[in-house]
């Protein structure tokens, strides 16, 4: 992958999507925290975050859906992670590592379709593979392996659903919505989109 292939336009777009979704994640994180605190006495605190886990994968799937180039999903996830590092992430420094792993999952999904299919199916698969990849890593890193297997399977199931809802369905809707407004004309997604009225800076 040569760096020169990347235009500044693409990179800024990916990084800004990373910022937007990092902010969304932080907002949702508070909700997840409240939920998991409520679940603490039952020992099910981890589920609070599983439900919103899919928000993590949104930046990469949405960026890939808009830009539609090989490598976009991976790099967006890394950039998003780097942005979070800038914001002062509470998780830890390994956020860049997790970004790499999740991005690789999403990238794999799009590569399976040879970067030709950009629909709900490929985006959902991207979310699911990201979830699976990161779960394998957490088995080790968060010591999940010392938890009961039945709990782990339940966690994974909730995470898959979350991934499909957020990075599949919601990202698809968001991408299509953006295409309809005409702001993404210069990207692959906008080239084919059926644009109604193109909004101008003054109308916005």
């Amino acid at each position: 992958m040569k760096a020169s292939k990347w235009e500044l336009k693409d990179v800024i777009m990916m990084a800004i999507l990373g910022v937007v979704f990092a902010a969304v994640y932080l907002a949702v994180f508070q909700g997840g925290l409240a939920l998991s605190t409520a679940l603490t006495p039952a020992g099910l605190s981890a589920f609070g975050f599983e439900i919103i886990y899919g928000v993590w994968f949104m930046a990469s799937t949405l960026a890939a859906y808009i830009i539609r180039k090989p490598g976009v999903a991976l790099i967006t996830e890394i950039l998003a992670a780097a942005v979070e590092l800038l914001m002062g992430n509470s998780g830890s420094l390994t956020v860049v590592l997790t970004g790499l792993i999740q991005g690789a999952g999403a990238e794999l999904a799009f590569a399976i379709f040879r970067y030709k299919k950009w629909n709900l199916l490929s985006m959902s698969l991207a979310g699911i593979l990201s979830a699976l990849f990161i779960f394998c890593y957490e088995l080790y890193y968060l010591n999940y392996i010392s938890l009961a297997p039945s709990l782990l399977i339940a966690q994974l199931a909730v995470r898959f659903i979350s991934a499909v809802v957020f990075s599949g369905i919601i990202c698809k809707l968001a991408g299509d919505g953006l295409a309809k407004t005409g702001v993404v004309k210069s990207y692959a997604i906008g080239a084919k989109a059926d644009v109604g009225k193109v909004y101008d800076e003054e109308d916005a």
Binding site: S36, G43, A46
Partner: peptide, 19 residues
């Protein structure tokens, strides 16, 4: 808060013999 949550998860659902 998260640490407290993880404590109870680890406490209640430790893998033990089923691992």
């Amino acid at each position: 808060l998260a640490a407290a949550g993880m404590f109870f998860t680890g406490y209640r659902f430790h893998a033990g013999g089923s691992m």
